[in-house]
Amino acid sequence: MKPAVFNYIRPESVEETLQLLSDYGDDAKILSGGQSLIPVLNMRLSTPKYLIDIGRLEGLNYIREEGDHLSVGALVKHKDIESSPLVKELCPILGEAIRWVGTTQIRNRGTIGGSIAHGDPSAELPCVLAALRGEIVVASLEGEDVLSPEEFFLTYMLTSMQPDQVIKEIRFPIMSKKSAFSFVEVARTHGDFALAEAAVILETDETETVIKAQIAVGGVNPTPTVLEEVEDHIMGKKLTDELLTEVRRMTEGNVDPESDLHGTAEYRRELVGVLVQRALKTAGERVKKGAGRHE
């Protein structure tokens, strides 16, 4: 399990990177943290001619509050998000979800841009990004595009990124102080890929009626999926057990998983229903306590 030969290039700037991508196109691959790419190279499932290592580019490694969102540079590592006070303060669901990404060793090297670019529908960050209605900033020599997760993620391991594009930044909307959240995931063994996951951000008024709901699931469709129908359905309602059961059924109707070794389509469909139900329940309890964000 050794990578095939490639030409290794370490550009000094984003501009140089974009020029290289423009020159080499499909022959090139971007290497940042390498936690998803290097296994693929080791197995020779990918044999790029050029490997462009952006891992130490300056200017893509920041977590900043900018207006209504948190801007996270593509090269920010998972562990930096995990330990960021700004993330904890402004977008706590991200901090909770990130703990599910691989293992400590993976989080110490893996970058957020790499995770998004990989396009794995069972990955945690895309799911959270979808739930929050975040954005992905993609650049090429032609300029920058700001894409919604829906525009960005096309299908299993495939994104809308063109060969000459690179991810610069991910934008996570700042969560309302009044909202609570929950991220739940199940994997066969600890640190393994998610069988299914659900991200929920919830806000209720003083009568415990839902006034805002953002729900997304991962691992059960070709891309992370926002459950708009569910969101609409619970708006203006109280989170009764009955409603939660409806949510579960409705979730099942909104996903179309594939069967694999670890679970049939039917199993995953039911599982994600359970997870959404549980995540909503937890978020509901947290918002009631008013302590949700900081848990």
């Binding site: 399990m1 990578p3 290794y8 290497l31 390498g34 936690q35 290097i38 296994p39 080791n42 197995m43 290592d53 562990k79 691989g102 293992t103 400590t104 060793q105 993976i106 110490n108 090297r109």
Partner: peptide, 24 residues
């Protein structure tokens, strides 16, 4: 394992644990 799961190759990189099979 050379695909980043088993952790046998864990080293410290600037003090942090990383998998050396997942780095060039």
């Amino acid at each position: 394992c050379e695909h980043g799961v088993c952790g046998a190759c864990t080293i410290l990189l600037n003090g942090e644990s990383v998998r050396s099979c997942l780095m060039l």
